[in-house]
Design a protein around this nucleic acid. Structure first.
Lengths: 133, 133
DNA sequence: AATACAATGTTGTATATACAACTTAAGAAT
DNA sequence: ATTCTTAAGTTGTATATACAACATTGTATT
């Protein structure tokens, strides 16, 4: 083999994302949401009322993934949607309150991860993102 | 917020792994296996007959994930297992033949990705791995 | 050897994701 | 305005993963 198996870029990136997710998830156990749902709530917090598709566009998520997550978040009354088709989504009051609780936890996790990654870690991550598209 | 949402390390690593996976997957459409199963086959190709747990250890995969993948690979007769409990796994003849076909495709994909990542990309990835644990 | 504990494997449940098929609406072209 | 095309949303199916519960087997202690 030209490269060693351990070099497999796919397998390694998958592993890295599992590690990072574990950090975030450990802070979310008391809330009934996932890491992914957290980032969706943050998008809504930042952008206000947006079309559903805009969320996927921001986070580069599949339409189906967004669709299902929206449904899960709505079930817990964290978001509101306007029309039936091509709805606009926004945080509910309850969702807003949740976001206020989540932000410090997310920041703690980011602090943890950044301290692990070191000063240059974020730069490396950005460089990977810039080249991989 | 202390950090910008777009900086979320979890969300970004998830996205990167999706991108890399897409590259590998596009080469796998004619075979009935996934990226993850491919790496498992490669582990078996490299290590020969191993305990199932060793696979998870090598790739840092959950026991349940390995268990289910083994089952899927066995269903297609790509691997053989010895005993019933705590089995030893190895490639079948058919599995070996598949691996021989997969290796060049995997290498092509690695070439693609490495050319995108640039010379330093792999170094950055390694640094991320070394710091994130 | 018998018991207790630890490691390993399996299975159930829930979400993440890909991809395809389908539905519905919006916009363009006439 | 009607028709056509395209974009967006939903849903079905399959795997990836986490986590918990459970089963099985090895190992250590006595």
């Amino acid at each position: 083999m030209k490269y060693d198996l351990q070099l497999c870029i796919g397998s390694r990136l998958r592993r890295l994302s599992r590690i990072a997710d574990r950090h975030f998830r450990s802070k979310l156990s008391e809330f009934n949401i996932t890491e992914n749902q957290m980032t969706i709530l943050f998008v809504l917090n930042k952008k206000g009322k947006v079309e559903q598709g805009k969320i996927g566009q921001t986070l580069v998520l599949e339409r189906s993934t967004v669709s299902r997550n929206i449904k899960l978040l709505e079930k817990q009354n964290y978001i509101k949607r306007t029309s039936d088709y091509r709805p606009e989504i926004e945080l509910s009051k309850k969702g807003n309150e949740l976001v206020q609780k989540l932000i410090p936890l997310w920041e703690e996790t980011m602090d943890e991860l950044i301290s692990k990654l070191g000063e240059n870690g974020l730069t490396y991550l950005s460089k990977l993102e810039n080249s991989l598209n």
